[in-house]
Computed example of a mutant assay.
Amino acid sequence: MTQTPSRNWAKRALRLVDRLASTITAVSAFLLLAMTLIITYEVGSRYFFGRPTIWAWDVNVQLMMALIMLGIGDVYRRGQHIRVDVFTAALSPRKRAFLDLMIAPLILFVAVLIIWTGWNYFHRSFVRDQHASTLFAPPLWPVKFLIPVCGALLSLQVLTKAASDLHTALKGTPE
């Protein structure tokens, strides 16, 4: 059976979003490694040489925020977010997909709210050239920029999961 061009386009779009999510997951893993190395360096500097850094705390806080924000879409994509499994575990894949479709607009609303408020939060920080109130004082707008970006990534994940759930709800089998 041949697929229509619109169906092929949709599958390519879904694969592209999945590749983007996988890339972001790899970036998150790199950020976690960077945090580990920075903490190790800070501990060595502080306790072995008596020379603590002025930058390790600030950099790690920003890396942690990036790690959290970048992980939101991937957690949703993998279905590892908090939910009441006791209710959904007994459902068939078709009924679970239908339930997920009913909840998707609410999650999409939250994602759009994250984009909207995150953009305002970032923009205010950027215009004011806001810096952390520490000795190192890094700019705060780069990490705040990740809020609307990751809200957009969450939106993409919600839409791609909804497309997959729609297929499952209509056909009875996961795509």
Rank of each mutant, 00 (worst) to 15 (best):
M1F: 09
P5C: 05
S6T: 13
A10K: 12
A10I: 12
A10M: 14
K11E: 12
R12Q: 13
A13I: 08
R15S: 06
L16P: 00
D18F: 06
D18C: 03
L20A: 13
L20D: 01
T23K: 01
T25W: 08
V27D: 02
F30Y: 09
L31C: 11
L31S: 03
L32E: 00
L33Y: 08
M35H: 11
T36D: 00
T36E: 00
T40F: 15
T40I: 15
Y41F: 15
E42K: 05
G44I: 13
S45A: 15
R46T: 11
R46A: 04
R46I: 06
Y47C: 00
G50C: 01
G50F: 03
G50D: 08
R51G: 01
R51Q: 12
T53N: 00
A56M: 09
A56C: 04
W57D: 03
W57N: 05
D58G: 11
V59W: 04
V59F: 08
V61G: 02
V61D: 00
V61E: 12
L63A: 07
M65V: 15
M65D: 00
A66Q: 03
L67A: 12
L67I: 09
I68T: 11
M69E: 00
L70N: 11
G71Q: 13
G71M: 10
G73D: 03
G73L: 05
D74M: 10
V75D: 01
R77Q: 10
G79S: 04
G79K: 13
Q80T: 08
Q80N: 05
H81M: 06
I82Q: 02
I82F: 12
V84Q: 05
D85L: 01
V86Y: 05
A90F: 09
S92T: 15
R94M: 04
K95V: 05
F98I: 05
F98L: 14
M102S: 05
M102F: 11
M102G: 06
P105A: 07
I107E: 02
I107S: 06
I107G: 04
V110E: 02
V112I: 13
I114L: 14
W119R: 05
W119Y: 15
Y121I: 01
F122N: 01
F122T: 01
R124F: 10
R128M: 12
S133A: 14
T134H: 13
L135P: 02
F136R: 08
F136D: 04
A137T: 06
A137F: 08
W141D: 07
P142G: 04
P142Q: 07
V143F: 12
F145L: 15
F145E: 03
P148G: 04
V149H: 04
C150Q: 03
A152V: 11
L153C: 10
L153R: 07
L154Y: 13
S155M: 13
S155F: 09
L156G: 01
L156E: 06
V158L: 05
T160S: 13
T160K: 08
T160Q: 09
K161Q: 09
K161H: 03
K161T: 11
A163C: 09
L166P: 01
L166S: 06
L170F: 12
L170K: 10
G172D: 05
G172A: 06
G172N: 07
E175Y: 10
